[in-house]
């Protein structure tokens, strides 16, 4: 049998890593449907991710909604389109802000914890031991975590949308003296149902990416305990970069496909 030799050229390492990351993503996608499903682990992970993300998400979202409301408020007032403040802030929050806030928190709080957990197991040879016992670590550990981060991302996305819009409403009405009725009435002047769908879809995808990247870095940490720390760090950074990239692409595609309501 021919010796398998690794190709060497600049950037080969990066390509190899990308390839392995995709391979893990595919493995996860395939093993999602393999029985027995690790329900216990899944529920525990959901609970864990939710517990570390809910509070920070709410805390981040209120000022986020406020900032959008304040900016839009002053802009719309200058343009004399005050009645559209509500519409615009709903659109901004539901379509863009909330999936991103969700993703950043799922990646930053949930993903880093997943990566640290799996990384620690890797350097203690627990993953090896599991593989040797004939149990797939991807199915047993990674799939429930990725699923949990997807589910929590969707739910958080709902939370962020509500809190964001409520925050925007509060600031607009209380601080900028907008008319409550106008704010509410214009809700669906610009926003439409597909905006919510794309928001949830993005959250789902971001949850998947955050989970897979965290698990990937956790399964392949640089050697030693310090390696796990580095891996956590890298997983968060890599996830953020990937998320912004994917968000850009999805938004462009969405805007092409779904006609805006005004025109």
């Amino acid at each position: 049998m021919a010796t398998k030799s690794e190709a060497r050229f600049p950037g080969a390492g990066a390509l190899r890593q990308t390839g392995s990351l995709f391979a893990l993503g595919l493995d996860v996608a395939v093993l999602l449907f393999k029985r027995p499903f690790q329900l216990r682990e899944f529920v525990q992970q959901c609970w864990f991710i939710a517990s570390v993300t809910i509070l920070p998400t709410a805390l981040v979202t209120i000022p986020f909604g406020a900032v959008i409301a304040l900016q839009l408020g002053s802009l719309t007032r200058q343009l004399g389109a005050q009645s559209f403040t509500g519409a615009a802030s709903v659109l901004a929050i539901v379509q863009q802000a909330s999936p991103l806030v969700t993703a950043l928190l799922v990646a930053g709080a949930g993903g880093s914890a997943i990566c640290a957990d799996i990384g620690a197991r890797t350097i203690r040879e627990e993953i090896d031991a599991m593989e040797v016992l004939g149990v797939s670590a991807v199915q047993r550990l990674v799939v429930p975590r990725v699923l949990a981060s997807m589910l929590i991302a969707i739910l958080l996305n709902g939370l962020v949308s509500v809190v964001g819009v409520a925050g925007g409403y509060t600031f607009n009405v209380l601080l900028q003296h907008g008319t409550p009725g106008a704010y509410l009435a214009s809700f669906n002047a610009l926003a439409q149902m597909p905006d919510l769908y794309i928001g949830e879809f993005k959250a789902l995808l971001f949850g998947f990416i955050a989970g897979v990247v965290a698990a990937y870095r956790g399964l392949h940490p640089p050697p030693g305990p310090k390696g796990v720390g580095d891996a956590v760090n890298q997983s968060v950074v890599v996830t953020f970069l990937l998320l912004f990239l994917v968000n850009g692409v999805l938004t462009l595609v969405y805007l092409q496909i779904v006609p805006t309501k005004l025109s």
């Binding site: 197991r121 203690r124 040879e125 627990e126 090896d128 031991a129 599991m130 040797v132 004939g134």
Partner: peptide, 25 residues
């Protein structure tokens, strides 16, 4: 050289004690 699936099957024949025990923490 065998496939992942064969590997999982054959590993059921093995009992392995790792250097540090490798217990699930």
């Amino acid at each position: 050289r065998c496939s992942e699936r064969e590997l999982y099957e054959i590993r059921k024949k093995f009992g392995v004690l790792f250097q540090d025990g490798a217990l699930f923490g």
